[in-house]
Amino acid sequence: MEEEGSSSMHARETSRLWRAWRTVHEMVQDRGYELSDEEVRVPLEQFKREFADADGSIMRGKMQFSARPSEAMIKKFTPPPTPGNPNPQSEAGTIWVEFCPEKSSIGIGVMKKFVQHCSANNFKAGILITAAPLSPQARKVMTVTQHYTQIECFMEEDLLVNITHHELVPKHIVLSREEKMALLKRYRLKETQLPRILSKDPIARYLGLKRGQVVKIVRTSETAGRYASYRLCV
């Protein structure tokens, strides 16, 4: 009886982790990193084979991967050359994704280890997926290191479903700097005159929007067919 209970619990957790695993892959792919479809659409059986322990529990410590940015993404996130900096480096770099094995809430120690791992291996961005919420100080560590490594944290339960697949969520496209400048010029706007989107908005978090980036939102419209609006991330 007890064994049955524990096995069903394991199955539940396995399916939860599998869903989070898939969503985070889709997220990384949607952001423009190179991931093949086989990597993204992992069947549950294969997932179990890869990460399950002998007793059926999933080893979170093994759930980690990195991804390189695609050509298009590198181009998109390269700032325009200036006289001072004729060959600008792209802001996009390799991303590191890791599931945190810690079950209780995440403290400074865990966070620091993750940040150090990211910076030691020259990852430009890091995503930590945790089962428990971060402590306030760990959150602070995350924001302090924002300058050299872009660290993001998600909770497993936030990744159970891919929100962009919901029918009420319109398509969001991040604009590059040139596109943003063109938009502002086209409509003779200042940045602040655009509608806004919070950086903690679920979609903004999904796309990894930073302050100042503009996202194009394409909705279907009954009268116009397609309706595009733009929002500035704040």
Partner: peptide, 11 residues
């Protein structure tokens, strides 16, 4: 309060 929480994270 943060300190207390931080210590609790360490167990």
């Amino acid at each position: 309060s943060d300190l207390i929480e931080e210590r609790n994270c360490m167990g």
